[in-house]
Amino acid sequence: MNRKYKNPPIVEVVCGFKFNEETNWDATIPGLLHDKLKENFPRKEQRIIQELEIKQEQGNIQQYLRTTERILFFTEDQKMVIQVGPRLLVINALKPYPNWEKYKEYIKMGLDTLMEITEIKGIDNVNLRYINSIKLPRGEDIKEYFRLHISLSEKLLKNLASFIAIVEFSYFDDRDKCRVNFSFSLSRDEYILDIDYFLNQKGNLSISNTYEWLENAHNNIEEIFEEAITDKLRKVFEEVL
């Protein structure tokens, strides 16, 4: 991180890995993983999650809704969570976000420990996502705070209830993409800047390049974030110089 903020807007950071079908997986893996991680993640619980998988097959979008079991490990303060599902590993950091270096240690802890338990044959998907929540005083002109914004006439702005703007950026010959979802809702009275960097080409990442991929993902997310906001918003976050 080049810039640091006293009041960063980050609500959650998520890093998720979906391993390929060739990776051996069985019901004992979450338990074995927790045994090795329980010093840092003493709390464990089980949840049933409904997963929506969206696939594009032959030009058509297919959605599959399935119920899966997910085991969650929490740090004592519940600010860091590891989720384990079938061939799925997720590392969540909830606010207050420590910093990239610290968060990366938790990602490494989860992934390296999992690799001690089972041989990961390949990664189908990986993503790094930063969800930011920004509250501004009512009636402020968003152009003064964001360089990524929608343009509306005064008349339309008067009755604005919500908006969602989605922008995508492509990296490394389209191997990676970053989807930026910028939204506002009057009922929540906050702007959400959701930056999701993901592997766009399924399986096009070797295990050995994973940490390098994460570093690039983080750098690109950081660049997008800084380009999307103005100095006025940086003052709201109280930049630490």
């Binding site: 998720g16 998988e53 969206i54 969540n92 993409k177």
Partner: peptide, 19 residues
């Protein structure tokens, strides 16, 4: 619109905020 946005196999609800 969803097809103009890039296609990928994505697993939803890995974010606590989304849950």
């Amino acid at each position: 619109f969803p097809t103009l946005i890039s296609s990928r196999t994505e697993i939803k609800l890995i974010s606590i905020v989304d849950q």
